[in-house]
Design a protein around this nucleic acid. Sequence first.
DNA 1: CGCTCATAAT
Length: 740
Amino acid sequence: MEFIFELQSSSNISYQRSSTTTSPDRYIDPKCLDFREALSFLNEGTKVDSAYYVPLLQKCIDTYSASEAQIIHTHIIKTGAHEDTYLMTFLLNVYSKCGVMDYAHGVFDKLSVKNVVTRTALIAGYVRNSQPELAIEVFNELLEAGAYPTNYTLAAVLSACSSLYNIKMGKQIHGYIIKYQLESDISIGNSICSLYSKCNCFDYAVKSFGRIPEKNVISWTTMISACGDNGEAQKGLDIFVEMLSENCEPNEFTVTSILSLCCVLQALEFGKQVHSMSIKLGCLSNPPVKNSIMYLYLRSGKTDEAQKMFNAMETVSLVTWNSMIAGYAQMTDIEKDVVTAQHTGTEALNIFLKLSRSSMKPDFFTFSSILTVCSSLVASTQGEQIHAQAIKTGFLSDIVVGSALVNMYNKCGDIEGATKAFVEMPTRTVISWTSMITGYAQHGRPQQALQLFEDMTLAGERPNKITFVGVFSACSHAGLVDEAMRYFKMMKKQYKIKPVMEHFACLIDMFVRLGRLQDAFDFIKKMNFEPNEFIWSILIAGCRSHGNLELGFYAAEHLLELKPKDSETYVLLLNMYLSAARWKDVSKVRRMMKDEKLGKLKDWSSISMKDKVRSFKPDDRSDTHSPEMYALLNDLLDKAKNLGYVSQKSLEMADEEEKGKTFSSVVHHSEKLAVAYGLLKVPSGASIRVLKSISMCRDCHNLIKHISALTGREIIIRDSKRLHQFNNGHCSCGDFGSLL
DNA sequence: CGCTCATAAT
């Protein structure tokens, strides 16, 4: 049987070297048979042409099989074919494409002839396998050897510079390219464009793109994703349209880039058109394309659509899982809508659970997304389990995962857990320092927060404006006016950070807590900002607490001028006017709420148990344990009264319209029910953690302080504005803030 | 002869 090599057109190998070995009398087409059969043929000791190995090696690339390549490698040595530089370059490339650079380098070391091509292959290998430093090293060796880089070499080296964000070296290479007039090479032009984009030189990227004489699909795709990377999403879509008008056909890479832009722009309709275009182009079967479409639907709120695609997917990669988890995780912003946050957060946790049960291993993307979900839901039980998993899989050392963990424990009100996670981080960033400083401040440990700030600056880390929000918040908790002013100066003078509204809010909060209302007002006059809703709210809450109604009314007038966009702010005003029996103002505020089309406050609390998230509305009786919960609450209420708790007639939670009903006591706000549920269901000794959609009211705050003392349980409630850690009758918030 | 450039997410 005679065998003639016939390479498939799809294959990018062309190997037609004239044979120096003896022609074998029997050949089996390695493409048509299985690997072992082809090898046993070799094992018979038949002398074969070097070219015989090529399709076998190609198969190793296709199946990403380094071990099979090794077996062939052994045969190559046995038959003496390793003297063939071309074959060995190919083998080097096989190892590189199978992700084993050690083997690839081994092949390189044994080469008798090391030329530009073999070195380029090695450089490209290191670039491909995320070792750009080594790629540069080999490039330097190439130069030292006196060789001239080819356009292949230069493209690969430019890519290494991109990965290292080394714009300096990139520019040197660019200079070389200009000098040798290689700029018109498409691959080089594309690489240059990509380099400038990755190094945040968007203008240069645009210019480089313009200088590519004959743009191909890669050029266009590079430019489009450059727009995405540099926050020019709309421009990316425009360039895509231009690309189509130039009759350049997009491929799967272009489609994924465009879909990513559609996510950023929330351009669902455009995305849908790209969806149908990808069908016409025949690239819908491409897994990344499918992923991107699914993710776009998810991010656009079309969860059913996304879920359908997810369920129907035949190749589910880790990226697919991560996309689903991240997509849901991004919808867990409780400041927007708690109900949605609950639902999507639970969904993300479910998907993570399924992933954990599959054979796939979560990576740092998965961990950081899912930890965000735990933070949002105050789900520390799940968070702890995920922490354990991160340790097991070795992703704990990742800096993003570490910060996400610190953040999770802080948001869940577990300051000990946060401290431990923080200490265990191998390296800390300004983000993790800041998270921890803010954590201490929120947990009512201002001294530790300030100490940590000192540690941070001593460690040489530069604080940013958010760090200072944490610092001021700590000063505010501790009433450290002089310290606060010192830090305020330090921020402006030493760190050249311009004060923003959040800073002023903390400082004003500090004066208010101390009862220095006039100082707070003076401070407002001194700052060159118009106070926002939040600042007026702090003042009004403070005026109520300190019984200074005149200043309160004054602040209220200013607040009303701003036409607040937040229902809670109106309720705060309403309560102030109600308690002063200023009925005219009450109806005025009510009218404004109607005009602004602001709905009622959605009082909503949830508690994350081991296996589920349980949610409660006010006066909720939907749980099977409701009778026990209400009995427990009544019992605690009686006991609290004996300890001096006076049930404040609960004021408006914006539910009641009629004046008569206004002072009716709404006994069972949602967090009371969630706490009761927790007392019954959470193992004794463990803390009870509750998430609440709006600010706690004073009455609930008061009662829960007593409950914490009566039951000896730590109760943590994170509401829409702050964290409350109740222990032995005290709360970490210091009883101040915008309590309704 | 062999080696190159571009994609989805936190």
